[in-house]
Each structure stands twice: as structure tokens, then as C-alpha cells.
């Protein structure tokens, strides 16, 4: 069965300041969506609100995932239900190796699915992790490093994609995964996402650059302006944006409001 993430009329405020003003968006498994827009229009707010960051207050609307309204769920419950967020700024956890962290996360998912589960065995885990690292062309040494501590920008993003590959969510949100990457790193990350894409994974790529879309081909493109999805379309919308910028859309919007 194809699962979906459905965002309906979502309003989100940070400290009483409304950032999202009625977002509507549906992302299904097997689809790749790109959400574009200038800085400060609420794209990252949407990403964090979807995962349930405590600072982001949902003032109206719904987030449905697998048919359930997840607004009241804690962050970890949403994650275990199959949502994943690749962070724009991944957080360092000193002293905790990538491997140790991933194993704990896998076991948390397994335990949620089956309370009797004893967790993944170490040999099985090693096999799994090596396979995923090979898929992403990562050095195996990486598994022993402390999570995000002293990682370069590119390493952080690759670590995010490794987590995505290992946790196998139904819906993955990539928040500005392309920012701060040189062209080689960008290609590796994009190749990683492409290799994971398939009927079981829905992807929402948040970006304000067109360039990642040269490597990952979205099925749908959405443009966010002032806290709303202002325009949706196919891949050609991104190209149009590249050529014409956002102004035509702003003008179109203000005309619509005036009319």
C-alpha cells in the first residue's frame, strides 16, 4: 500500500509569530517533490514542524501520515512511524560513534514495531552498515567516528544520507541538503538519494537552489512564498524559475489578491 504525507492548511508559529500560513502539500511514497522558494519563506520551518520540533507551534491545520493525524505525536514517534528529516545543520554528538548511534536508532524502530524484539545482532548490523556505506561510496572508517563531530560540510550531509539509507523511512524530507556542498559532494549526495529512491520512499527536497535538481529529477515542484505553497507543477516549473526568478510569481500573487 502506498502511504502518503498529507499537509492540510498548516499554520505554524514561532513565539506567536506566524510563519506558515496555510500550507497544503501531499507527498506519496515513490514520488520526489522539490519545494523551492527564496530564503525566509518558511521552508525550513515546515521541515521542522513536520517532525514536531517543540519550538514550532501548530496553530491550525493537520498533518496526516499513514492516515493518522500526527500533530500530537512526539518527535520520536513520528520518526518510528517512518518519517525522516535530513538536517540542514546536523548536530554533533561527541563521544557517540556513527555505528553506535545507528544501531540504537535501528533498535528503537524495531522495538516500536515489536516490543519483544531483542535488537539487531552485531554481525547483522555490521553487514547492513557496510552495505549501506558501500552504496554511498563511504569509507568504512566513517562508522567509528563520533557523530558529526569535526565533520566537514560534505561529510555531515553524507552522514545524513547514510542515516536515511539505514533507517529506510517511508517519507524523507531533505532540508537544504545541497547547501554548503561543493559540486563533487553534491553529486555524491544526489547519487545517494537517487539510489534510495523507489516505490517505498517518498522524498521532499527543500532547496532554494536549482542546482541539486540537475542531479535529482523531481516529479513535482512546488514554490513557497510567504508561508504558503504559491505554485505547483512539474519539473519544468523549476526550469522556469531558474530563468525568470520569483518575481513573476509575486506579481501573479499580488494580482490575484488585488483581483
Amino acid at each position: 500500500m502506498t502511504e502518503a504525507l498529507e499537509i492540510r492548511n498548516l499554520h505554524v508559529a514561532i513565539e506567536d509569530n506566524e510563519i506558515l500560513k496555510g500550507v497544503d502539500l501531499v507527498v506519496k511514497q515513490g514520488e520526489i517533490h522539490a519545494l523551492m522558494g527564496p530564503n525566509g519563506t518558511g521552508k525550513s520551518t515546515l521541515a521542522k514542524a513536520l517532525l514536531g520540533h517543540p519550538d514550532y507551534e501548530i496553530t491550525a491545520g493537520e498533518i496526516l501520515f499513514k492516515g493518522e493525524n500526527i500533530i500530537e505525536m512526539d518527535v520520536d514517534e513520528r520518526a518510528r512511524l517512518g518519517m525522516f528529516l535530513a538536517f540542514q545543520y546536523p548536530v554533533a554528538i561527541p563521544g557517540v560513534s556513527v555505528a553506535n548511534f545507528l544501531r540504537t536508532a535501528i533498535n528503537a524502530h524495531r522495538k516500536a514495531a515489536d516490543p519483544e524484539d531483542k535488537g539487531i545482532s552485531i554481525p547483522d548490523f555490521r553487514t547492513l552498515l557496510k552495505a549501506k556505506m558501500d552504496l554511498l561510496e563511504m569509507d568504512h572508517q566513517f562508522a567509528g567516528r563520533y557523530l558529526n563531530e569535526g565533520f566537514s560540510g560534505g561529510e555531515k550531509k553524507r552522514a545524513e544520507i547514510l542515516q536515511l539509507a539505514t533507517l529506510e523511512p517511508a517519507i524523507a524530507i531533505l532540508d537544504e541538503t545541497d547547501s554548503g556542498l561543493d559540486i563533487d559532494a553534491l553529486r555524491i549526495v544526489a547519487d545517494g538519494v537517487n539510489s534510495l529512491a523507489g516505490p517505498d520512499l517518498g522524498v521532499l527536497i527543500i532547496t532554494h537552489y536549482q542546482r541539486i535538481l540537475n542531479y535529482i529529477k523531481p516529479d513535482f515542484v512546488h514554490i513557497m512564498l510567504d508561508g504558503r505553497v504559491a505554485e505547483s507543477g512539474g519539473p519544468d516549473l523549476a526550469e522556469h524559475l531558474e530563468e525568470h526568478g520569483y518575481n513573476w510569481l509575486r506579481e501573479k500573487q499580488s494580482k490575484a489578491t488585488a483581483g
Binding site: F87, V91, I93, V96, F101, A105
Partner: peptide, 27 residues
Amino acid sequence: EEQLFYLMSRGLSEEQAISMVVSGFIE
């Protein structure tokens, strides 16, 4: 808070997340 959000976004409970930060600290 950001460490907890990050770890919890991977499926760890708040308690697991805190204890992971602590075990890393004493590592």
C-alpha cells in the same frame, strides 16, 4: 534541545536521547 530533537528525529525516545548524549560525554 537541538541535540535531543536531532536524536529523537531518528526514533530515539527522549530518555534514550539524553542517555546517549551522556554516554558520549563519558566515553
